[in-house]
């Protein structure tokens, strides 16, 4: 069997190394019967398109963020609710347990199965104006968000002006003031050079969105039980590699930008932010009441 895989990152990135590790393990464990050709750096299309390609079956594997899966799989969109997780440890606990299983079951109905959860850290706000310590600091700020109603709702609820701008244009937009700020994790903040033009990083950690190593559901179910198990094992092992590298990478990026003079601030009082999210939760759960138990399950995972 030969499968084809998609990954958006360049060589050397934790996810790229993780995906290559997965391919290597699969080849080893199957004694060369099963091989995977990885297409890195997003050469076969952007993330939403690649998700569609795996669902249709043009590709068999992809490393996706659960963010862009949200519009397709409602249950996955719960992970895009701001402050749904307290911290990364909480997210791991939930995803490796019942929450992850429920979301995976919902994804399978849309043609995707997650074999393992990869890390993408926590996203925080950064801007070129001032440190953010309370919601009022965001009021009136133009903040770049990803394309999802939940993210733009989040910024609006904080009194900011959400601007959906293409990822590649964020640097220029920050530099020239088309937007005042954006939000992302350490590695992106550092590697895209955003720290050069937006020098205040405030540890809001408002979004902790995991990633999946996803496969096409029917291609996976067609395999003999033993091979399915082999793939899951390889995926889990590769996730350990990716999670370790990710932690290293975060530390590296954080050190680098702090050395470069970025003003980093913790947010001691997160409650005002969480309270401000109430309208976002109300609107979302009002439209999707069936998701309330899942949100409760996450909140109650301790």
């Amino acid at each position: 069997t030969e499968w084809k895989g998609w990954n958006i990152h360049k060589a050397g990135y934790p996810n790229t190394v993780g995906m290559d590790k997965f391919a290597e393990l699969v080849e080893q464990k199957s004694n060369g019967d099963f091989s995977i050709k990885m297409y890195h750096a997003g050469v076969l299309g952007n993330q939403p398109d690649a998700i569609e390609q795996v669902r249709i079956g043009g590709l068999e594997i992809g490393n996706f963020s659960l963010g862009p899966i949200g519009p397709i799989v409602k249950e996955a969109n719960v992970l895009s609710l701001p402050f749904v997780f307290d911290d990364v440890a909480h997210m791991h606990k939930a995803m490796d347990g019942a929450v992850g299983d429920q979301i995976n079951a919902a994804m399978e109905k849309k043609g995707l199965i997650s074999l393992a959860w990869y890390d993408a850290g926590a996203r925080s706000f950064y801007n070129s104006k001032k440190p953010i310590t309370q919601p009022a600091d965001i009021t009136g700020m133009k903040v770049r968000v990803m394309n999802n109603d939940l993210y733009s709702g989040m910024v609006s609820a904080l009194g900011g002006n959400p601007s959906p701008i293409a990822y590649a244009e964020v640097y220029q937009s920050l530099k020239t003031g088309v937007v005042d700020g954006a939000e992302n994790g350490w590695p992106e903040y550092e590697s895209m050079g955003h720290f050069e033009v937006a020098g205040y990083y405030s540890l809001s950690q408002h979004l902790i969105i995991p990633q999946c190593l996803c496969v096409n559901a029917s291609a996976f179910r067609r395999l003999p039980e033993a091979q399915q198990q082999m793939l899951i094992e390889a995926a889990q092992e590769s996730a350990q590699v990716q999670r370790n590298l990710w932690a290293q990478r975060e530390a590296f990026s954080r050190d680098k930008v702090v050395k470069a003079g970025v003003k980093l601030n913790e947010i001691s009082e997160k409650e005002p932010f969480q309270l401000a999210m109430q309208p976002v939760y109300d609107k979302y759960l009002g439209e999707n009441p069936e998701l309330k138990p899942l949100v409760m399950l996450i909140k109650n995972t301790k």
Partner: peptide, 19 residues
């Protein structure tokens, strides 16, 4: 033997680029 749907996804996606 690739799904033709993807050919047409690429054709639409080719110009659904904001730049």
């Amino acid at each position: 033997g690739l799904p033709l749907l993807i050919a047409f996804q690429r054709i639409t996606a080719g110009i659904s680029v904001f730049s």
